[in-house]
Amino acid sequence: MKLPMRFRILHLLSEGISLSTAEIIANLQSEYAGEGQFKESIMNLHLSSMRAVGLIEIIELSLDAVGALQQKYKITEFGRSRLSYLPSSWQKSGSKVAV
């Protein structure tokens, strides 16, 4: 069964690598493509909220080719503690993260 979007983002970031919004979208494309909620604006809203409550943090800021802000997110210790709320099948599984 697919995870709710925020659960899946947290799970993805728990796999040990920092990712930008675009990279998170690219990694989840195969699972959520076709769902109306799967778009950059909603993804950014999730990431901002998850950051405000301390589940994830920004570890790198840069500008892309057109001068837009790029942020790389990483899971925090608090975020890792919340992984216990994932269904047991997801707590053991790993997936290949593309960057």
């Binding site: 697919k2 709710p4 109306g36």
Partner: peptide, 18 residues
């Protein structure tokens, strides 16, 4: 439903935060 989130109901209800 119209914002494409409706599948999240079922996914969320089977979790502890839900």
């Amino acid at each position: 439903l119209f914002t494409g989130r409706w599948r999240e109901y079922g996914r969320t209800l089977v979790t502890k935060p839900g």
